[in-house]
Design a protein around this nucleic acid. Structure first.
Length: 255
DNA sequence: CGTAATACG
């Protein structure tokens, strides 16, 4: 099973740049999209409902903002939208599709980079989301939470770690929250199971020549249960595919 | 500076 996570930064913009033309070539079974920045009535064009896939969108109430989606070749047994708290539910930040014993989710964790109030909201979301992850762990289901986590975990995951230690996305408390998720709650950064290379980034600033020079951050993860981590075959970031300021990240699993 | 609607990342 091949699964992609992709922050589209506007699914309509990504479509114009050829994302849906490339999709068949990517040959994935599940696509987890973040920042669709559109509401379902703005996505009536068939391009946004590729034929081979069962497509589910979860939009923000606010127009042109946030939103997640899941496309899957197999029709999900069940789709869950939201998490039961305000920010997740009104901003379309979490959608989960269940396939038998396996759940695959698309997460768009809030960004805190545009000010102190946004950072406070992000931290509050993180707190609530940790509870959700603990609950899911206890359910014993096999789980793959794909998405834009908006946190860089380690020095290896960011080009310039030193000057970014006081910037949202690489704050010590954010990195510690991921430590907690991995070391104590028991999840695994699936990408790092098979890929320990440096310079593996999934997001680059639009400013300057950041992407051309690969001055980036790894923010887009597949966070999985240990049993699933043992099934990772390969992990690749498609930096050359410029549909968005994020790159698609595809993992292949023995599922 | 790009995306999409005048904010947000």
């Amino acid at each position: 099973m091949r699964i992609m996570t992709f922050n589209a930064n506007g699914i309509r913009a990504a479509a114009r740049k050829g994302f849906f033309d490339w999709l068949p070539e990517a040959n994935v079974d599940v696509v987890c999209v973040q920042e669709t920045k559109a509401q379902i009535d703005q996505l009536s064009d068939p391009v946004f409902h590729p034929e081979q896939y069962s497509c589910h969108y979860f939009d923000a109430v606010k127009k042109g903002y946030a939103g997640t989606a899941i496309y899957s070749r197999q029709k999900p047994g069940k789709v869950l939208s939201g998490l039961g708290f305000e920010v997740a539910d009104t901003e379309g930040r979490y959608i989960q599709a269940d396939f038998g014993d396996l759940s695959v989710a698309s997460l768009y964790l809030p960004s805190g980079s545009s000010g102190e109030e946004k950072q406070t909201r992000k931290v509050e979301f993180m707190k609530q989301f940790m509870k959700h992850m603990k609950k899911l762990k206890d359910s014993g289901r096999e789980l793959i939470v794909c998405g834009d986590w908006n946190i860089c975990h380690k020095e290896i995951d960011i080009k310039n770690w030193k000057p970014n230690q006081k910037n949202s996305g690489f704050l010590p408390e954010e990195r510690q929250w991921l430590d907690e998720l991995y070391d104590n709650v028991g999840y695994v950064d699936a990408f790092r199971e098979v890929n320990s290379e440096e310079h593996q980034y999934s997001w680059w600033s639009n400013r300057g020549q950041a992407r051309a020079n690969n001055v980036g951050w790894r923010l887009d993860y597949h966070v999985v249960t240990p049993a699933t981590a043992a099934k990772v075959i390969s992990a690749e970031i498609y930096r050359e595919q410029s549909f968005s300021d994020h790159a698609p990240v595809i993992l292949e699993y023995k599922i």
